[in-house]
Design a binder for these strands. Structure first.
Length: 113
DNA sequence: GCGTTGACTATTG
DNA sequence: TCAATAGCCAACG
């Protein structure tokens, strides 16, 4: 994997990575960041990139499969996004615990697994 | 080219 | 487990 944006902007690569997440699996912002930039420091940039995701791409990029390191949804981008994300994940078979947390040991997916 | 901005993460109390 | 802090990086204005 190339170190950084060489085939487009960083967040376009984020979109490509997110598209690679298989059905029924989730990953973390830090994992995407590490897969792209080689370190987890750009995790915020990943979130920022997904926040800049155009509506036309919302159905093509499975942004809902990207959550934080705790297996939790902490979206504040647009209202109702967290509920929509949870609904989509549950539709894919991803179970949420009583604390709205997913089991990363079961549903977590890493690019270098 | 610089300062601000975040859908983050790790650490500390 | 939660809250506050600090470090982090790329895009935007």
């Amino acid at each position: 994997m190339r170190p950084l944006a060489s085939d487009g902007t960083f967040y376009e690569q984020v979109y490509a990575k997110v598209r690679a997440i298989p059905f029924g699996r989730v990953t973390t912002y830090g994992a995407v960041s590490e897969a792209l930039a080689g370190h987890a420091g750009a995790a915020r940039t990943v979130g920022w990139a997904l926040g800049a995701l155009p509506r036309s791409q919302l159905d093509e990029v499975p942004w809902w499969r990207v959550i934080n390191a705790r297996g939790r949804i902490s979206i504040s981008s647009w209202p109702g996004a967290a509920e929509a994300q949870r609904a989509r994940l549950e539709a894919e078979g991803v179970a949420f615990g009583p604390d709205d947390r997913t089991d990363l040991d079961r549903f977590g997916w890493w690019f270098a697994e």
